[in-house]
Write a protein that binds this DNA or RNA. Structure first.
Lengths: 335, 335
DNA sequence: CTGAAAGCGCTAACAG
DNA sequence: CTGTTAGCGCTTTCAG
């Protein structure tokens, strides 16, 4: 592996000159520039980024910390992040936490060793106060999708309450009164806000929520499956189900299919998070769509503003509005 | 940010001792160990990995180069890779090429600057001979899913021909004779092998392939959509379609749904690649399932064997067998 | 405009 | 067992 020294030797100049020629397009006489560039090319020289990082104190790498890349919500976010990172000449490191705070903490500890310049995180739990200890001056980060209680930082979130509200209101308008909720993890703000939106929608129409209709699905496929089964076994079965994320929606549909429950005739269903496949179910799924890719790009843009010092001193919290995409998985009561 | 120097000062020992205590659990007297550990803790010391990488000549980062993380096939692979990497104390950098050879080349160029210790790659095209120039001694890599012609390296692939063969044979057994193929990119081995398996299955039963039934879908949703439309417009429409990857399957189903073609009554469908959602289509999709997660873990394991020098000197090519998962999207002809 | 030299923070000989 | 010191490859003063 050729180093800057080899190039300097080959070109007959000092290493300082090589460095300058390669980094500053306006430096030096044309003659020496030629020599250096020729030498570099001849030796197939590739500057060692680690050495550069060492002196510059930055790596041009950011990390993306998420529960699980297999969740389509996060893969889309990830793509958004990667696209703007690459625009800024950065690379992104992927970190799956599996919703485990300790795994998450391990990752962040390694970040503190200057391996990344900053990170974007969908916290495992909103009780991860550990984050408050990371010095946002030297290691900026931005929250995505989920906030962390009492920890102030930039954030890109979706108005989850509004999304849930829209979904449940839609069902109420269709005449449903017993609407099951397959809720997300209660230790995430996301989960709680979607629950709140559900309750709020009921309140608006002056109805009260039957707590037995609210079942925790933990944001996982399996959890959604079990929750749906619980709902189906109820004496007074709901006529509609609102599912608080896409993984649980898959589990829910599985349970419904297994039980031979027809959608929407016997059960209306609305999921949170759109997917490529949601449209192709029979019937096509009505969902609350979040601007996932955009969330990724925005988060990355804010992070780079911090990194380049062009951000406003105040933390920015961007709240995006989700959209109700009405397809065919909901029917009016009595039809 | 505290450095090793600060810790040494605080503990009243040399920096070498600090380094040793922190890296070698058997080093030093109990007394000095205590002092060092206490000092490190007090200062919240976190060793600078970049500095360490600098001297050790390795970063403990590997890269995963794939066309698009949004393709579920690759997200599952990615998860497998990350799990193994994290087992070895490594992190993984994600690189999306969008099937673009030049974007891919850019990434690999940056790798040559010692930013990763090795990489796993699903090549954009099997004509990316550029890869042959990377020195596998200093920057080992392993192919996943797709090989590169004339470039020898470790590889984890699936027997694509066999998978396609199984799928098409299944359709032939059901009595289909006009089977459409939505083929993948012809400049990938994967795409060509699936085509070959298709042709082979026909040959085995002594039938010839009608070339008008083979349409290129380029491995994308849109491509699959267009290809399916082409197939539907044929004078002598096929009675079954075999789709060579999951993205195209989504596009194909969209086209079928739009055209009001019922599955499997009017058209049998088999997709390549299983998905969480394939099972929940109505009817549930018959697919060729690839061991995606396992492919990721195996690729990573081989890479780490190379990295640790425990691999056999010869290149290893692991060929995994895909499995035909029969659900309900195919019917017998005449039923 | 160019070169010499001082580090960046750490590890690993090399001495003692 | 412990400390001193020489780099890792690069950027960046500081001189010339």
């Amino acid at each position: 592996m050729a180093t800057i020294k080899d190039v300097a030797l080959e070109a007959g100049v000092s290493i300082a000159s090589v460095s300058r020629v390669l980094n500053d397009p306006n430096y030096g006489s044309a003659a020496m520039r030629m020599k250096v560039i020729a030498a570099a090319k001849k030796l197939g020289y590739q500057p060692n980024k680690i050495a550069r990082s060492m002196v510059k104190g930055q790596t041009n790498i950011i990390a993306l910390v998420i529960p699980d890349i297999r969740n389509q919500f996060f893969t889309s976010v990830a793509r958004g992040v990667e696209d703007v990172a690459s625009k800024y000449g950065y690379q992104v490191m992927l970190c799956n936490t599996d919703e485990s705070s300790s795994k998450q903490r391990q990752y962040i500890d390694t970040f503190r060793s200057k391996i990344v310049d900053g990170f974007i995180i969908a916290v495992a739990s909103d009780q991860d106060h550990y984050l408050d200890k990371v010095d946002r001056e030297t290691l900026p980060f931005v929250f995505i999708d989920r906030l962390c209680e009492g920890v102030s930082a930039d954030a890109i979130v979706v108005d989850n309450r509004d999304g849930a509200h829209k979904a449940v209101s839609h069902l109420l308008e269709l005449g449903h009164r017993r609407i099951g909720l397959i809720a997300g993890k209660s230790d995430t703000l996301t989960g709680r806000e979607r629950l709140r939106g559900y309750e709020e929608a009921y309140r608006v129409v002056g109805e009260t929520v039957d707590q037995s209709l609210v079942v925790d699905g933990g944001f996982t496929i399996e959890g959604g499956y079990q929750a749906a089964k619980t709902l189906l076994e109820l004496e007074d079965r709901p006529t509609a189900i609102f599912v608080a994320n896409n993984s649980m929606t898959i589990g829910c549909i599985r349970a419904l299919t297994e039980a031979g429950v027809r959608i929407p005739e016997e059960m209306s269903v609305i999921g949170f998070d759109d997917s490529e496949w949601a449209e192709f179910f029979v019937p096509p799924l009505t969902v609350v769509r979040q601007p996932t890719y955009t969330m990724g790009t925005l988060a990355a843009e804010i992070l780079f503003q911090r990194l380049t010092g062009t951000a406003s001193p105040q933390w920015q919290e961007v709240v995006l509005k989700p959209e109700l995409v009405i397809r065919a998985s909901c029917s009016s009561v009595g039809c």
